[in-house]
Design a protein around this nucleic acid. Sequence first.
DNA 1: ATATTTGCAAAGTGTTTGCACGTAA
DNA 2: TTACGTGCAAACACTTTGCAAATAT
Lengths: 150, 150
Amino acid sequence: MVPGVMQEHSQPEALSLYDRLLARGWRMTAQRRAVSRALDGEHLHLTADEVFARAQALLPEVSLATIYNTLNDLVAMGELREIAAARGPARYDPNMAPHHHLMCVDCGAIRDVDLAPADLDLRPEPGHGFELLAVDVTLRGRCPACADDA
Amino acid sequence: MVPGVMQEHSQPEALSLYDRLLARGWRMTAQRRAVSRALDGEHLHLTADEVFARAQALLPEVSLATIYNTLNDLVAMGELREIAAARGPARYDPNMAPHHHLMCVDCGAIRDVDLAPADLDLRPEPGHGFELLAVDVTLRGRCPACADDA
DNA sequence: ATATTTGCAAAGTGTTTGCACGTAA
DNA sequence: TTACGTGCAAACACTTTGCAAATAT
C-alpha cells in the first residue's frame, strides 16, 4: 500500500489514521508514526499507557510524554476522540464515524454500538437554547463473561 | 419539616437526600449532615471541592478526605450518582430520577435534560449479549452565553 | 462499650509542562 | 536552516489510604 495516495473509490473513512495524517500534511516523525500505527485497527479503545506499550513495541525510545502530546494533538485535530464513558484513565477511539459505546460495569470492557444517532438528534426540544453539537451515548451493562462469574 | 417522617402521599423522590439517609438508618454525624445538606437542591452537579466548600460553610472543621469518603459511600449506596460526562474532576448528582445531561463544550456548564429513556431502552439489538443496566446520554453543545461570546 | 467515622498527611494515579536537545522539511 | 517535535524530570490536579483520636449508637 502506498501511503498518502488516496484511491478514488475508497470511502475516506477507510484510510488508516496514519494515512489520514499524511494526507493532511502533518509533520511526520518516527514517534508520531508509532503512535498512529498503535492506534490502527477497528474497535480500539486504548488508554495512553496502552498506546505507549504498543508504540514502544514499534519504537522503543518513544516517551510517555510524547504519547500524551500526540494524543492531545490528534484529538484537537479531530482525528481521534476521547471516550466519555470511562472515569479513570482516558480512552481514545480512532473511529471517527458516529457510533456509541457499550461498557461492562464489572470489567470495563468496551464495545462499539452502531445506534442510529437520528434516534436522539431528531429532538430539537431539549436544547434549552444550547446549540447542539454532539450526542454521546454510553450503554452500561454486564458482559457475557462477567455475567457468568456473578 | 420533620426529618425521618415520610408523608404517605409524597413521592419517595421528593425527600431530601438527608431525609433519605435518615430513613435508611444511616449512622449520622455532623460531617455527613453537612455533606448531605450541601447536596440539597435541584439541578446540582457539584465537584468534590464544591461540596467541600458548601459543607465547610455549615461545618468549618470538615475535611476534604471526609467529603471524598462520604461521596463514595453515597454513590455505593445508590443515593448519589457520579456524572459520566465530565473529564476533569468528578461531578455528583443527587437527583436519582432518570435523566440525562446537556453540557456546554466551552464553559462546562451542565443542565439536566428529561429525555424519555424509552427512546433508547426499547432497542434490544445492540446488546451483543450484554445484560443492559443503564443508558447514559450526554448532549454536548454551546450554551447561550458562550454562543454570544463566539 | 465498641464499632465506625474523622482528620491529617502521605502516597497514589493520571496528565501536563519547562526547557535543552534533536530533527523533518 | 529553523521552526517544530521530543525526552526528561519535576510539577500538577484529583483521589485514596493508614492510622490515631474522636464519636454515634
